[in-house]
Simulated assay, not measured.
Amino acid sequence: SRTGGSIGKGEVNPDQLQRYIDNGGFWHHAFADDQRYYKMANGAYLDFAVQMGFIAKAEPIVFQLYSEPMQRFRLAARGHGKVQPPEAERGRIEASMD
């Protein structure tokens, strides 16, 4: 609202900068109990995130845990590929690129 009573996207609030100053430069919002956990797949949170403009669609956010560069290092430590690490470092590279 124009008085700053709403949160997220909305009409221009002429007092917005003063509100930030009054709050030490911060804004705080307490999530509802059903929005607090597993935000990447939590329907209630994802709907809220769309309303706030954080994300475009209320779809689960998939984390890609596989890393091709790390796999290449791991494979090189196992002897695959044209570029090979020094023999003394192979165990450390394979262990740390897991």
Results as ranks from 00 to 15, higher is better:
Arg72Pro: 12
Tyr66Leu: 10
Arg19Val: 01
Lys9Arg: 12
Ile55Lys: 15
Gly53Gln: 06
Asp33Asn: 14
Asn42Gln: 13
Glu94Asp: 15
Phe63Tyr: 12
Gly25Lys: 13
Pro14Lys: 12
Glu68Ile: 02
Ala56Trp: 06
Arg19Ala: 09
Gly5Tyr: 06
Arg2Gly: 07
Tyr38Leu: 05
Arg92Pro: 01
Gly53Arg: 15
Ala77Met: 08
Gly4Gln: 08
Phe54Cys: 02
Gln51Asn: 14
Leu17Ser: 12
Glu94Tyr: 14
Gly8Pro: 04
Lys39Pro: 00
Gln16Arg: 15
Gly43Met: 02
Asp22Cys: 11
Gly4Ser: 07
Ser6Arg: 03
Leu17Phe: 15
Leu65Met: 08
Lys82Pro: 07
Leu17His: 14
Asp15Trp: 06
Gly91Met: 05
Gln51His: 12
Tyr20Ser: 05
Ala58Phe: 07
His28Pro: 00
Tyr38His: 07
Asp34Val: 03
Ile61Val: 04
His29Gln: 10
Val62Gly: 05
Ala32Asn: 13
Leu65Cys: 09
Arg36Leu: 03
Gly81Leu: 07
Phe26Leu: 12
Val12Trp: 08
Gly53Met: 13
Ala41Pro: 03
Ser6Glu: 03
Val50Gly: 01
Leu75Ser: 13
Gly4Asn: 11
Asp34Leu: 01
Phe48Arg: 05
Met97Lys: 14
Pro86Ala: 14
Leu65Trp: 08
Ala95Gln: 10
Pro14Leu: 02
His29Val: 05
Asp33Trp: 11
Leu75Arg: 14
Ile55Gly: 08
Ile21Gly: 06
Gly81Pro: 09
Phe48Asp: 00
Ser6Pro: 01
Ala88Gly: 05
Asp15Val: 04
Phe73Gln: 03
His29Met: 09
His80Lys: 07
Lys9Gly: 04
Ser1Asp: 00
Asp33Cys: 08
Glu87Gly: 01
Arg74Gln: 09
Ala44Met: 10
Arg72Tyr: 06
Ala44Tyr: 05
Asn13Val: 03
Phe54Met: 11
Leu75Val: 03
Lys39Met: 04
Ala49Lys: 13
